[in-house]
Design a protein around this nucleic acid. Structure first.
Ligand SMILES: NC(=O)c1ccc[n+]([C@@H]2O[C@H](COP(=O)([O-])OP(=O)(O)OC[C@H]3O[C@@H](n4cnc5c(N)ncnc54)[C@H](O)[C@@H]3O)[C@@H](O)[C@H]2O)c1
Ligand SMILES: NC(=O)c1ccc[n+]([C@@H]2O[C@H](COP(=O)([O-])OP(=O)(O)OC[C@H]3O[C@@H](n4cnc5c(N)ncnc54)[C@H](O)[C@@H]3O)[C@@H](O)[C@H]2O)c1
Lengths: 223, 223
DNA sequence: GTGGCTGTGTGCACCCGTTCACAAAGTCAC
DNA sequence: GTGACTTTGTGAACGGGTGCACACAGCCAC
């Protein structure tokens, strides 16, 4: 696995953020190195999988020792594009949108809330977590001026498709969709969907089956 | 594929709720039948996949015609265990917990909020969406009296593991975890995790790669 | 009834991802 | 320097999921 341009498998990409969080934790407690075995435990996956996943980033381990936490943390952040901030815009500041806007965890991880938009005149102009809610129509200017890269959809499902299209028009190329609706967009645009009702229904399925196999999460086994 | 006990693949289970939502939409607009092709379009998947998925439920289609919407809806609801309600408890009524409690979409889909629990004395005793917040310690009685089947964790990550254990002790067998923490529980317990920061980081990865392949969602391609 | 048409159900080949197992690389004690 | 020990990196086997392709079931028109 030399220094060529490796293509990282989809499944691995989905696990990198989990490893990343483990590494942050380890770095916080000043652990200098970590073996694939222990990291696997923390992340709830198989050790061989950890090694294979990490090997896509490069041969950063030391045989007989493990991985240098700080170094791996840096390499992984770089690979995930987390060496820079990615401001997000939240569309729809209802129940969920407000919770997202008030949540500090995103900003901490490099995803500051650059803008909030809604169409409700009662909401436009109000301020949430220090950010003033703007009208959806101002999206293009907001995206341009704040350097917004990611759009989060927290509108009712009926509005989702049109909001998504406006985001794409405004230059956004990555969308996280919380509404239970299937978006039809240019395949160039990266879309991820979080559908809470779907999660509950999957749990319901396994429950009904008198405890079938422990369910798997979005991206592999969970613990 | 006779009337024997079919084992439905994990990947199929994750898609059934998506089909279900499409069917509900179709039923609402009084569409009598639907072809795999059209349903595939609506769900954003491949038509052959739809047919194979549906075939696990039984041979409910009519060749040359398609599937009877109402009938399929019923069969699928039954298979997903949605012919009954599954009350949920939300642990942690902060930003996210309150948004969840206020959200009507769960109750509509058969997942009423049976209880809310927290440990903050300022929150215990208050009422959210008509449900009084109780102390975490009351979980066992609440689970028993309200027939709660599913636990939703919306506490800070540090509390997640201990809350999860208390849920399991109280008799809960299915958990939806919103905190960014890896839970270690009896494999009998079904756990699903929704980690918003992970989703954003995955988007960040593909964005950095100057628009790699459109990302895939939790369970397959998305649109 | 017959023929034509539409769309299901599924066999099959392929691909991606997982896991095992082990050689090689590196560390450390002496 | 040598040897024992630890842990990586990866080849190879396996398993599950996807999507093509097509036989054939069922409907409709006449
Ligand atoms: N609240 C939850 O816990 C929760 C859980 C699961 C899913 N969801 C989904 O998230 C979405 C939002 O849920 P919610 O509870 O926050 O709903 P909500 O009704 O509280 O808020 C929706 C907000 O979107 C705004 N809006 C409507 N049309 C818009 C448009 N075209 N552009 C911009 N904003 C617009 C509304 O003014 C409102 O402020 C829904 O699709 C819902 O299904 C929410
Ligand atoms: N708010 C969001 O939009 C958002 C987004 C992504 C992830 N999350 C995750 O969801 C979780 C909750 O986020 P939040 O923003 O609502 O946090 P929050 O701090 O607003 O609320 C947490 C609540 O949990 C309660 N709590 C603490 N310990 C508890 C315990 N042992 N048992 C029961 N309740 C307890 C607190 O009293 C508080 O009410 C966090 O893990 C966070 O990382 C939240």
């Amino acid at each position: 696995m030399s220094e060529q341009e490796r293509r990282i498998p989809e499944a691995t990409v989905a696990r990198l953020p989990v490893y990343l969080r483990c590494l942050v934790e380890l770095a916080d407690e000043r652990t200098p190195t970590i073996s694939s075995e222990r990291l696997a435990d923390m992340a709830g996956v198989n050790a061989a999988k950890v090694r294979k996943d990490l090997s896509y980033l490069g041969s950063y381990g030391t045989r007989g020792v493990g991985y240098d936490v700080e170094f791996l943390l840096y390499q992984m952040s770089r690979e995930l594009g987390l060496t820079q901030d990615w401001p997000v815009v939240v569309a729809g500041v209802g129940n969920l949108g407000q919770a997202l806007a008030n949540y500090g965890g995103f900003t901490d991880r490099g995803f500051p809330v650059g803008a909030l938009v809604d169409v409700d005149p009662d909401k436009v102009g109000t301020s949430i977590a220090g950010v003033i809610v703007r009208h959806l129509d101002e999206l293009p200017e907001l995206v341009a001026s704040k350097g917004i890269a990611i759009g989060i959809i927290a509108t009712p499902p009926t509005a989702a498709q049109s909001v998504a299209e406006k985001m794409v028009e405004a230059g956004i190329g990555s969308i996280l969709n919380f509404s239970p609706s299937v978006l039809g967009l240019d395949p160039e645009v990266s879309v991820r969907k979080v559908d809470l009702a779907v999660e509950l229904q999957i749990l319901s399925f396994y429950r009904r089956r008198a405890d079938g196999p422990a369910s798997l999460g979005p991206d592999g086994p969970q613990r």
